[in-house]
Amino acid sequence: MDNVKIIAIPVMGKSTDYKVSKLFARSPFFIIYDEKNQTIQFAKNDYKGDQAQSGKHISKLLVAKGVNVFCGHDIGFNVQKIAEENNIQLILLPETKGMMGETVINMIKKK
């Protein structure tokens, strides 16, 4: 995959100092990291409290923002489905570590 990666990372608050959310679709905020320009944006998840289909709605919103990689601990079925339809790569972070958003970004920067 040689194209520019724009990565969505679910975090618990509007800063890179917050922990990565355990559930992708129920995360309050997303870090949108542009690997080429090394820029960070935040996207608020207005669907996190929805009873159903929150994964579907937030995934479509992230796709509309140009995201092509979803990175998180637990990625649900609806998110997987949208990822499959839009050719989006999934990265599942190790479950045991309580990673901070900044840690993930630093790992991507260093590689």
Partner: peptide
């Protein structure tokens, strides 16, 4: 190295 899992399209 980092224990993450990823898919390839």
């Amino acid at each position: 190295s980092c224990s993450s899992k990823f898919n390839i399209k």
